[in-house]
């Protein structure tokens, strides 16, 4: 059976690196893996989505509507924007963290209220925590992506992979210690 994970966030949050670590880890565990990213204008603060699929044999690199087993959202309203990807009974992992788009910053639009509450009311399997705060506590808010990855891999019981080794290969040496801690802290959220 193919499993589908969609990672969504805002340009600059590190969704693509997290997806890369995830894909390499899954490949090393012996799965066929496909990952598709739409990053056209991500650097300009746009919304970013990455699809990761793995299993014995994966054909299409793209996840269909309502067919993702897991949606990992790096930001609250992005979870609401992309919730249509999640299948009934699927799991939502959401960073309880806000990044305001320009329309909200200028006061033209409002950042919606109680997003987490509404997500939880609709999606029974919702795991929400503030990964940005955890990462900031470890010394660098940018490691929030790896905190979320730690939670994801723990939740999916993907323990055939030596994740620290994958991180070592894909992350610059000076950020390695931080990211190992971030990964573990994320996993701890699901204890």
């Amino acid at each position: 059976m193919t499993k589908s994970i969609i990672l969504v966030g805002v340009g600059g949050q590190g969704t693509i690196l997290a997806s890369k670590v995830l894909s390499v880890g899954l490949m090393r565990a012996g799965y066929d893996v496909k990952m598709s990213e739409i990053h056209g204008m991500s650097q300009r603060g746009g919304s970013v989505t990455t699809h990761v699929k793995f299993g014995k044999k994966v054909y299409s690199p793209v996840i269909n509507d309502h067919e993702a087993d897991i949606l990992v959202s790096f930001e609250k309203v992005e979870a609401a924007r992309w919730i249509g990807y999640l299948k009934a009974g699927g799991t939502l992992v959401v960073n309880d963290y806000e990044i305001h788009p320009l329309s909200v910053l200028t006061g033209e639009a409002k950042y919606p209220e109680d997003v987490i509450g509404k997500l939880k009311a609709e999606v029974p399997n919702t795991i929400a925590f503030n990964a940005a705060q955890i990462a900031a506590g470890l010394g660098n808010v940018k490691a929030q992506n790896i905190v979320l990855l730690g939670a994801l891999t723990k939740g999916m019981k993907l323990d055939e992979t030596d994740w620290p080794a994958v991180l070592k290969d894909l992350i610059p040496p000076k950020l390695y210690d931080l990211n190992i801690k971030a990964f573990a802290a994320g996993a701890d959220q699901l204890k």
Partner: peptide, 30 residues
């Protein structure tokens, strides 16, 4: 995508999912 092909050629209904009553403000590149 595979869902579109399935729906168009096999008339299969798409799977069930969720919708949440939150209006996400647009996030265009700036």
């Amino acid at each position: 995508n595979a869902g579109i092909v399935r729906g168009a050629l096999r008339g299969s209904e798409s799977a069930k999912g969720y919708s949440v009553d939150v209006v996400s403000p647009p996030r265009p590149p700036v």
